[in-house]
Design a protein around this nucleic acid. Structure first.
Lengths: 240, 240
DNA sequence: CCTTGCGATGAATCCATAT
DNA sequence: GATATGGATTCATCGCAAG
């Protein structure tokens, strides 16, 4: 078990990594979603868009929430293609999306050269209900592979739905994912393999990876989050 | 409570229905999905595509499983646009999709003039597992509205995820949906309103609609399924 | 009436074999 | 070489029969 962190822009950093050096990719990119018009999406800060007004808990701000839907798709295709180059043949990939960006994200995954294999909804039972409407209760993990998946020894049957409530105690980033969610996702990687997260944030993917015997490579643009992630990863190594 | 059934092609029949005469649309169109290549999708029968080899249980076959992805999208946009004309302003719509056609279906919904409002996964705990992969365990309900939804009196909070196993007792069609699923979906309709299902099949939408005090209009191309649906709807009226 | 057990099923997917 | 066909596989859940 070990990890490597890179500080910098995801796309620029990915270009420096060698071919076929990674066994799985797990990415939680900024969705550039929220808001029904493209103007609403790009003019407000993440905190204004995604937090209920009056919420007291705050997080350091983060980059990349400024793209409209078309450029979000192109940008995703770019970093996804770069990830493909870095990935072993047959390597799996998991990409998060909300419902609004899901069609764009599946297009981008395939445009980047990946074979789309399916969708795993993440069910958040703690979501805020809405009168007269279906509650918006799920985010989505789009998964795929670099060519055919092939034989996958040592990996059992993986879930088709992940139900984990969002708990503030777990969150070190506004869009941080619970460790329990990431623990389900890392299992798609061949045992002992190396997992890459190009948008590491506070490092939840890495914590889950180290906990289950994978190696981890993370990229993050914000020095503030690099520091938070490093602390959490060290802690995961000391207290397995 | 009452119902009307039409025997014929959905698109042709929809064109004969009057403007703004419907309060909600619930559609479970043939997905033309399944299989890894376009050839597999369009050349194989629904039974070959969707049932495990060796399964003894059979259903009458059904129409419309022959389209490739592009024509599926165009065709959906056509019948969705016709449904929009027939629907009241603010009327909701629910359209089923599997994971593979989901991006095409959301595009078609919007191309047809509907406002896309969200996705409700239908979680099937009894899904077929696959070693080394995430289980393909959900189908998806894409929902939207004819313009803004507006005030929706008499409708409570609706679920954001529907977990109901597939039960043979409930199934009269290879792709038939459990009544419990349809009972959740019909609630999106204004109380006492008229629900249209342009691809009725064995009539599960209608059974749920009548059971909860809605009126129902169904269209179905197969005489065999019209007969099955009529029997089930009569039964629903006699034994509420 | 409750518990246990066995068999069947699923809007699949992959791959080998045949045409 | 391209296209078509068929078999093996996986397990949570349900239905029914037996205890």
């Amino acid at each position: 078990m070990s990890y490597t962190l890179y500080h910098g822009d995801a796309l620029a950093r990915l270009r420096t990594l060698p071919d076929a050096s990674i066994d799985a990719v797990i990415a939680d990119e900024p969705y550039s979603s929220g808001g029904t018009s493209s103007r609403e999406r790009i003019s407000r800060s993440p905190r204004d868009k995604y937090q209920t007004s009056g919420t007291e808990r705050t997080y350091p701000t983060f980059y990349g929430e400024h793209r409209d839907q078309r450029s979000f798709g192109y940008w995703c295709a770019l970093w996804l293609a770069e990830c493909l180059r870095i990935a072993q043949p047959g390597a799996p990939i998991c990409v998060f999306s909300d419902w609004r960006q899901l069609p764009t994200a599946t297009d981008a995954l395939q445009a980047g050269g990946w074979r789309w294999q399916g969708i795993v909804p993440w069910n958040k039972p703690s979501a805020r209900p809405h009168l007269g409407r279906f509650t918006n209760q799920c985010e989505y993990v789009i998964w795929g592979s670099n060519g055919p998946l092939g034989e996958r020894p040592g990996i059992g049957v993986l879930p088709g739905l992940i139900t984990v409530p969002v708990v503030a105690r777990d969150k070190f980033h506004l869009t941080g994912k619970p460790i329990a969610v990431m623990e389900q996702l890392v299992r798609i990687c061949a045992p002992g393999g190396t997992i890459l997260d190009p948008f590491m944030g506070s490092g939840s993917t890495g914590v889950a990876a180290l906990k289950h015997g994978y190696r981890f490579i993370g990229i993050e643009q914000s020095a503030e989050y690099i520091a938070i992630a490093q602390e959490r990863l060290e802690d995961a190594l000391q207290n397995p």
